[in-house]
Structures are given as structure tokens and as C-alpha cells.
Computed example of a mutant assay.
Amino acid sequence: MSAGSSGYRGSGSGDDVTASEEPPRFLDVLRELKADGCNLLVVGDAPRRLFTEASAGLLGGTDEQRYRLLAVTDASAQSVVERLPDPDETPGEFGETTEIVNHASPPRSVVESDDPPETPPLGDLSERRVVDPQLAGLQAELAESMATFNRHAGGLRPAQLRVGVDSLGALFEHYDAGVVRRCLQVVTGYVTDYDAMGHYVLTEPYDSERVQRIADDFDAVVEIRAVDSGRDGHHAEERWRVASRDLVTDWFPL
């Protein structure tokens, strides 16, 4: 995913950008979003594995020390392992820079599994389980974790904290839409306060009713799709929509 190192190759020419307009260069917009803190809605009619891949990119690589906070509602243990970097290659203590908030229903571990994945184990990674009738507990756990990371870092740098929620679909299935949106308003507010990058997975097409209802609550919407690797030379693509900049990019490799 290009929030770390974009593969964008142009200025974008989406359907709502006319030839007479000069939209901001995508990389410039991305730098602004990272500097100010941003919240991204990740959507698309795509296989679940591509959302894991997109999430891994947005959580950042091992080129510098980052703090990662991942809230899971219906993600598998395998997908959690796949989106996090190898603990042995991560700057800083992995257990002090990475945390999982588990809001799965029914409750289940995503760190300890009866059928361990073939990928590297998560070691001493912290998993905080939340059973929450109105999502206040999830809000509180995420806010507390962000504050703890900020103290540990002595003040977080822009985009040093990466936050992910996978997925919103499970929350909408179990809670009233208004409750979910209020929770997101609180969480996205904290993300912005810490100049962090947050992403929120919703495995539905961009033009679905639910995506359209909440898209304006985010700084950008990232669409993903699968493509023919034999024809296109890559297996998946992404497209960014940044309404505040009147920017819609072309599709480019995920």
C-alpha cells in the first residue's frame, strides 16, 4: 500500500476530475495527510487477502521505529501475523511497540491459535480482549493504547503511530449504525490528535450504500481490487479518493 512508498505514477484522472483542472500531486497530498494525521477508509469488492495486504502496507515497514495498534473484530490469527513485520527485524522491542485489541465476537484469541500459522509467531505480543455492549470499551482501549505509545515515545512523530481496525463490517452487524459512527468519531479524533495514520477496513464496494454513508467521515477512501497478474504484471490495484483535495487517482499497483 502506497502510504509508505507510493507507486503512484501520475496526477490522477478520475471521473470527477476534468482535464482543465490541475489536482494536487498525489504524493504531495499524501505527505500532507501523514504530517497532519489522517484516517483512511479501505474498501473494495476484493478477496479478503488483499485487505490484509493493504493493511500491512498501511501499518508500515521496518525502515524506522513505528508503533502499531491493530483492533480486530473478525480478522483471523493468520491475517494478523501476515500484516505485522517480523519481530526480529522491527526497530525497538516488538512487545512495546505493537499491540492487538481483540473485539472478536464470539471471543477468541488472534495471538494464540490451536493451529499455528506457518509464518513467524507473534512472540510476546500483547492482546487485550474487549467484551463491550456499546463500544465504549473499544474506544477506551484504543485511546489508552495510543496514550501509552505517546508516553513511551516521549511524544510521537507524525505518522509514527499506525492504527488499524479490521473490520467495520463486523461492528455494523452487531451494533446500531449510529453507535458505530460515534465510536469511529472518537477513535479517528484520537488518531488525528496524535498525528497518526489510521485505516479502517470495510469489505464492500465503493458504491455500496454503507460505504457512501460513511465515506465523508474519513480523510480519504482507498479502493482495492484484484486484477489479472498475467495481463497487468501485478495481482492487485488501489485507487485513492481525497474529497477535500478534489483528487481521485488512477488505479496503480497495490
Rank of each mutant, 00 (worst) to 15 (best):
V163R: 06
F172I: 04
L171D: 03
P117T: 04
D176T: 09
S145V: 09
N150L: 11
Y175F: 15
Q160M: 11
L156K: 06
A170W: 02
G137Q: 06
E93W: 02
G164A: 12
S126D: 03
Q134L: 13
S109T: 01
A143L: 12
C183G: 13
L156D: 03
G92Y: 10
V101N: 02
V130C: 03
N150S: 09
P158V: 13
R181T: 09
V180N: 03
L168E: 05
G155C: 11
P133C: 13
F172R: 04
S113H: 04
E144I: 02
Q160P: 10
E141V: 00
E127D: 03
S145R: 10
V165R: 00
Q160T: 08
Y175T: 11
A177D: 11
A104C: 13
E99I: 01
L184H: 14
D124G: 05
D124E: 10
A140N: 07
A136P: 04
T97K: 01
R151W: 12
A140S: 14
L122F: 02
F172N: 04
L142W: 03
P133S: 06
D124P: 07
M146W: 10
H103T: 08
A136S: 13
E96T: 13
L156T: 06
V179W: 05
T119D: 11
G154R: 09
G169W: 03
R162I: 00
P120V: 01
A143C: 12
P106T: 07
